[in-house]
């Protein structure tokens, strides 16, 4: 694993491919986060809300995306993490998580999670801070 200090602009952290999203993933996240909005776990409730079926919690995807940075915890921590939720994540979707260094001085990364069709479902930035 390359150290953050050695990364050049345009270089990526180790990409992660998630297994297909399962209902159990979303039930587990509901329990762990306390977000029991039924559009994430119960089909009928999702359909009543005008959705094609249950969708993942946006925060589940955002939580997953942050793990690209966990292996670097001895070098720095996530100081700023901002995302926009751009699209729905449905059951069986296969997400790819990416982080590309955008600015070496501020240690800013462009991050996104995109689905099997190449569409970004969340997009944003992470600013890492070296430990003092």
């Amino acid at each position: 694993m390359k150290r953050l200090r050695d990364l050049q602009v345009g270089e990526s952290l180790q990409e992660v491919s998630l297994p297909p999203v399962s209902r159990l993933d979303l039930i587990k996240y509901a329990g762990a986060s306390g977000d029991y909005n039924p559009i994430h776990t119960i089909d009928e409730e999702a359909e009543k809300a005008g959705l094609p079926g249950v969708i993942a919690h946006g925060m589940w995807t955002m939580g997953n995306l942050a793990k690209l940075f966990t292996p670097h915890y001895e070098e720095g921590f996530i100081q700023d993490y901002a995302v926009r939720f751009k699209g729905m994540v449905r059951l069986h979707d296969e997400l790819i998580l990416k982080a590309v260094l955008q600015d070496k001085d501020t240690l800013t990364f462009n991050v996104d999670a995109s689905n099997q069709d190449g569409k970004a479902v969340i997009k944003g930035q992470v600013v890492m801070q070296y430990h003092g």
Binding site: A49, G58, F77, Q79, D80, A82, R84, F85
Partner: peptide
């Protein structure tokens, strides 16, 4: 309301973990 809200953006800032 508990239903019908759309989560548009989320921003964290940390001083330390």
């Amino acid at each position: 309301p508990e239903k019908g809200l759309i989560h548009g953006e989320q921003i964290y800032h940390y001083e330390r973990p």
